[in-house]
């Protein structure tokens, strides 16, 4: 902790450059799309992991916030001519605010009850998205027309799938960077104290309410950004992507990947999107992936609290984990 340019960070930047340049040369269109999705959900998983690792709080509603971010991005896409990157940032920020608002009544809760509240929220949003769907260029506030979706803009420099993949990776890396900065500055210290004891944290002058809300807002920001990026990647969104069960799965995979480092978020994204795509490509049933996820979750909870990332980083070196 403390050094920004630790060994792991540098390795990460190296990997990023490799992924930006080398992978598009080696992979077909299918896998570029899959990796784009994986990167998007890695960003969202990083938000779940942040709240769990720093505050010990379980959030099963991240998938709902991804949907909210996607909804805002699509709504603005059709209603305005704003540049796409600005759209993504607006969607992320608004979702962060919404995340914080939802967190407000939940602040006095932790543990099981908070997890249950988030589960209820996820279930609510599932029904809500089903009923109102996502804007596709139609009229009115909800913007839903009975036709195939009108164009969802991508930035001029990222029109192609490969370009958009790079665009997504850069957002993901920036997201990880923002989390990393938080961890080594005042919010990170405040979170650590809150996790130990809220009373003690308050006694030493930490604004507990603010910093807890801040964590939720940051997590929401990442979810909203992910949702907006997803809308651009797919060209539309469908309510079926935002079921409460998916929220459960996303949290589970964040834990399996490891919540203490960005490596874990990437593992979570890859497990969530790349593994099923690989299985599908090999003709294996998605049910097999489900069984593996379940077993991996139980394994991670019982014996490997640092997740797969912990094992990777542990094997790498002892000197420079960045959290």
């Amino acid at each position: 902790m403390g050094r920004i340019f630790s060994y792991a960070t540098l390795t990460g930047l190296g990997l990023l450059i490799l992924a930006l340049i080398a992978l598009p040369l080696m992979l077909g269109a299918l896998w570029i799309k899959v990796l784009t999705s994986a990167a998007i959900f890695a960003l969202a998983a990083a938000g779940v992991a942040l709240v769990y690792a720093q505050l010990g709080l379980i959030n099963l509603a991240q998938i709902a916030l991804i949907g909210v971010g996607g909804w805002i991005a699509l709504r603005l896409n059709y209603a305005t001519d704003l540049p796409v990157t600005l759209l993504v940032l607006i969607a992320g920020t608004l979702t962060g605010v919404i995340g914080a608002i939802f967190a407000l009544p939940a602040l006095r809760m932790r543990g099981l009850y908070l997890a249950l509240v988030t589960l209820m929220v996820a279930a609510l949003f599932q029904i809500f998205f089903n009923a109102f769907q996502f804007p596709n260029g139609g009229e009115g506030f909800w913007g839903v027309a009975q036709k195939s979706a009108s164009e969802v803009r991508r930035p001029g420099f990222a029109e192609s799938d490969v370009g958009y993949y790079r665009y997504t990776l850069i957002f993901m890396a920036i997201g990880f960077g923002v989390i990393g900065l938080h961890k080594i500055t005042a919010p990170g210290r405040a979170w650590a104290m809150i996790r130990q004891s809220e009373a003690n944290a308050m006694a030493t002058g930490v604004n507990v309410t603010l910093y807890k809300l801040w964590a939720f807002a940051l997590s929401g920001l990442l979810a909203g950004t992910a949702g907006a990026l997803l809308a651009g990647a797919l060209g539309q969104l469908d309510a079926r992507s935002f079921l409460a069960g998916e929220g459960i799965l996303l949290f589970a995979l964040a834990v399996v990947g490891g919540v203490f480092s960005w490596v874990g978020a990437i593992v979570a994204g890859l497990l969530y999107k790349l593994l099923p795509a690989l299985f599908n490509d090999l003709g294996l049933s998605a049910d097999v992936a489900m069984i593996i996820f379940g077993a991996a979750l139980m394994h991670a909870i019982m014996t490997a609290p640092q997740g797969i990332a912990g094992q990777i980083l542990g094997a790498f070196n002892r000197g420079g984990s960045d959290d």
Binding site: L30, K33, V34, S37, L234, G235, Q236, L237, D238, R240, S241, K273, P276, A277, N280
Partner: peptide, 8 residues
Amino acid sequence: NPELAGQV
């Protein structure tokens, strides 16, 4: 799955 549909 809408995403998988796009991918395949």
